[in-house]
């Protein structure tokens, strides 16, 4: 059941991605409705897959990388649908849905037995969930940043093409960027704290300074500075967009580090 739903989800997200990318280049409002419909259907299938999996797995088993990435992708789509519902910014789908698809494909590529971390403590679930939620925030900030930079460039170079007409106002994207980080940062902070507590219980040390932990802390620090800069000295707009794009690269590297390490421990 879970596997079938998962495959259906992937198919639907794939179709939605194609449809949303086509929407990016064509002046067709009907296309946005089609894309949204496919995405929503995919989201339902995804929810069923996640629930079925949760019911099927034992609570004691540590969350796998597969599950974490799938959950990340599900959250991304949820956020997209929520923003879409409120602001009707279809073009956001053209950026978020592909990202969700990539994350889902990564999840599918990994055997679902690969655990995120060695089972250490019950708080691991909390750690993974919180970290992933924080990452969703940064992912949305990243998407908003990319869209901001594109729109900024189009406006500066005065190219009033289809993309220009579809992208939302700059200040909306900047707000989205800010909100995402403001929501994502505390979640990641909590994720890191719960992770540290788990580690303390398991290994007797909060931080063991291995590469992916160090990298995660660097990323956290980076976002901290970005957030601080925005709230105090006006690092907003274009600079904020650049910084969040760079920051998200750090997030991706951390994730890759985690996955590689977990994979290594299994094989």
């Amino acid at each position: 059941m879970a596997v079938v739903c998962f495959m259906v989800t992937m198919g639907l997200y794939f179709a939605a991605t194609i449809s949303f990318l086509a929407y990016l280049l064509r002046r067709s409002e009907a296309l946005s409705k089609v894309s949204l419909g496919i995405t929503a259907a995919g989201f339902v299938a995804h929810t069923v897959a996640l629930v079925a999996r949760m019911v099927g797995s034992s609570a004691a088993a540590p969350p796998s990388v597969h599950e974490a990435l799938s959950f990340f992708s599900w959250m991304l789509i949820l956020v997209f649908l929520a923003v879409e519902f409120r602001h009707r910014i279809h073009v956001l789908g053209s950026f978020i849905v592909p990202l969700a698809l990539v994350s889902l494909i990564s999840a599918a590529a990994l055997p679902d037995t690969v655990p995120t971390l060695q089972p250490m403590f019950r708080t691991l679930w909390l750690h993974v969930t919180l970290s992933m939620l924080g990452t969703v925030g940064f992912a949305v900030a990243f998407v908003a940043g990319v869209m901001y930079l594109i729109q900024d460039r189009l406006l500066k170079s005065k190219r009033f093409n289809v993309l220009y007409s579809k992208l939302p106002a700059l200040d909306f994207l900047d707000d989205l960027n800010q909100q995402s980080i403001i929501l994502g940062f505390p979640l990641l902070t909590l994720g890191i704290i719960t992770g540290a507590i788990s580690a303390e219980f398991a290994k007797g040390a909060y931080v063991s300074w291995n590469p992916e932990q160090t990298w995660a802390l660097v990323t956290w620090l980076f976002y901290f500075v970005v957030l601080l800069g925005r709230l105090t000295v006006g690092w907003r707009a274009k600079r904020a967009a650049y910084l969040t794009v760079i920051g998200f690269a750090g997030v991706i590297l951390t994730l890759i580090g985690v996955v590689l390490k977990s994979y290594g421990t299994v094989s």
Binding site: Q151, L155, P168, A169, L170, D171, F172, D175
Partner: peptide, 9 residues
């Protein structure tokens, strides 16, 4: 129209 691409409200 341009103003609306910079300011949403």
């Amino acid at each position: 129209e341009l103003a609306k691409k910079i300011f949403s409200d």
